[in-house]
């Protein structure tokens, strides 16, 4: 279920663009920000709120990588493994995270805290290797830095 607040904002989007369909991506972003993923139920709700055929929302959402339809953890760790980051050890970073979190790429930790993904270039090649956790970028990574970042996130939890 999309929260009432977000629903209100999605409805506002209806009139914002020259054509209503344009509101799909902004609506997806609103939902994504709230829950880290956009499951089928939400897609249907978006269609209802924007008064569009559901299929149009599903088609659009499926094209873009940012809107996972399956539940992801509270923190979605996305490691860039494109060329510049790979040159500076991105693959090792992924392995390190897999070992540390005891999950494989694409999986979520049993406590629902972390999901690990690899992604294509995030436009931060000058500060490689890097990763994105939810909306934030973490750059120039080292093992110590990764440890600290994850620790901080866990601490924030408690």
């Amino acid at each position: 279920m999309i929260s009432k607040k977000i629903k209100g904002r999605i409805v506002e989007l209806k009139e914002k663009f020259p054509q209503r369909k344009s509101a799909i991506l902004p609506a997806l972003h609103l939902v994504l920000k709230e829950k880290n993923y956009v499951e089928k139920e939400s897609l249907k709700e978006i269609a209802g709120l924007l008064e569009l055929p559901p299929i149009e929302v599903f088609e659009t959402a499926s094209f873009y990588t940012m809107f996972p339809q399956k539940k992801v953890g509270k923190y979605h760790i996305q490691v860039c493994t494109n060329l510049s980051c790979s040159l500076l050890g991105a693959e090792e970073l992924v392995k390190y995270l897999e070992e540390k979190l005891k999950i494989k790429v694409g999986e979520t930790t049993p406590n629902g805290m972390f999901t690990l993904s690899t992604v294509e270039c995030l436009g931060s090649c000058g500060t490689a290797p890097m990763m994105q956790i939810n909306e934030d970028y973490y750059e120039n990574l080292t093992k110590e830095k990764v440890d600290r970042i994850l620790d901080d996130l866990l601490k924030k939890q408690i």
Binding site: F17, L25, P26, H29, A61, F63, Y64, T65, M66, F67
Partner: peptide
């Protein structure tokens, strides 16, 4: 001006 965010597609 409308700021329009993409969805992750090169």
């Amino acid at each position: 001006i409308i700021l329009y965010r993409g969805g992750g597609a090169y």
